[in-house]
Amino acid sequence: MKKWWLIGAAVVVVRAGVPAGPWIYGEFIAEDDAPAASVSTEGAQAASGSVDGQWIVGAEEGANRTAAGYTVSEILNGARATVVGATDQVAGTADVSGEKLSGAQVVVQVAAIATDNSRRDGQFRGNVMAADTFPTATFTLTTPVDLASLPTDGTATTVKADGTLTLEDQTRPVTVDVKVLHSGDKLVASGSVPVTWSDYGITPPSLGFVTVDDAGTVDFLVSLDRA
């Protein structure tokens, strides 16, 4: 994954009297990360039973295993790249009645979100997201979603969901396109919520050699079992 928020490394290098930009660019060549996970229909089965009921986020092997995190674009020494961070430390519930999703919530442990660089992750959890003070990010559904057209043959569909997103104790209304699959006795849903970080009081780093965009997405893929 691309190296984001390398403040710790930059400080060490500057204090040592070494130009930070060329060193970091030489160590961490800008390149795009793999995109955030999305619902996969590979190996999907026909739905067994009604979609109605109470559901809880669970574990799933393979492409549809639960994960959540962020995607953001940055410029490192003139090279633009996409950064993706993720965690499987995700909890949540969904209630479906009369083929309508009447309630849903997804809660992500911010401190568990990781890339492949511990320095970047340390700054993300500390200076940027203040995870010790604000340990979770939460999406909460605010408007029922009609699931009557959800396929039962192992294919997926996309529905629009209105809700709120809470980051660093700041809650804002959001709308997200959610891809949904009913496979066997499991529900799988994924989406990417567009976010402007400053709307939540979050300041993306701008350090000269690296500049992080003020817009990105909060991403989720949740596999749900019957509660």
Rank of each mutant, 00 (worst) to 15 (best):
L141V: 09
E168P: 13
F134S: 03
E99P: 00
A137G: 14
V212K: 08
V84D: 01
G216A: 15
R226N: 07
E42G: 06
N64Y: 01
D121Q: 01
T136S: 15
Q105M: 13
A94Y: 01
K3I: 03
G216V: 12
A131D: 07
A47C: 11
V11T: 15
L167P: 05
V218C: 06
G163E: 08
T217G: 13
A10S: 14
A104M: 12
K186N: 14
E99I: 00
V14N: 09
P22Q: 06
S192D: 13
A91M: 06
W23R: 10
E61A: 12
D225P: 11
T203D: 14
A137N: 07
T217D: 13
T66P: 03
P205S: 10
K186E: 12
G17A: 08
T82S: 08
A63G: 09
I7L: 11
T41F: 05
V128Y: 01
A44W: 01
G49I: 05
V180N: 00
I56Y: 00
D219Q: 05
S183Y: 05
S38R: 15
H182E: 15
G98L: 12
W197R: 06
V188H: 03
E60Q: 15
E42C: 03
L150K: 12
L101A: 05
D121W: 00
A161P: 04
I56L: 09
A156L: 08
P151N: 04
I56G: 07
E99C: 09
L6Y: 06
V212W: 04
T143R: 13
K179M: 10
D219A: 02
Y25C: 07
D116S: 10
Q89G: 12
D213M: 13
G26D: 12
R80L: 08
S48N: 15
A111L: 15
V13G: 04
I29N: 04
T217F: 13
G92D: 06
V174G: 08
G103D: 03
D169L: 00
D225S: 14
S50H: 13
T133M: 05
W197Q: 04
E99Y: 00
K186Y: 14
P173R: 11
I75P: 02
I29A: 05
S50Q: 11
T203H: 15
V14T: 13
T166K: 09
V18H: 06
P35A: 14
W197E: 01
D95A: 08
E31F: 11
S192C: 10
A10D: 11
G103M: 05
R226P: 01
A79M: 14
L165Q: 08
E60I: 03
A111I: 13
P204M: 12
S118E: 07
T166C: 10
W23V: 07
V180Y: 00
P144E: 00
D146E: 13
R65K: 12
D177G: 09
K2N: 10
I29W: 03
N77R: 04
L167S: 11
A215M: 14
D88Y: 02
S149E: 09
V210C: 08
H182Y: 15
V51G: 07
A30V: 03
V13M: 10
G85V: 02
G216P: 11
T66C: 13
Q123F: 09
A9W: 06
D132F: 12
Q105L: 11
A37Q: 08
F209P: 02
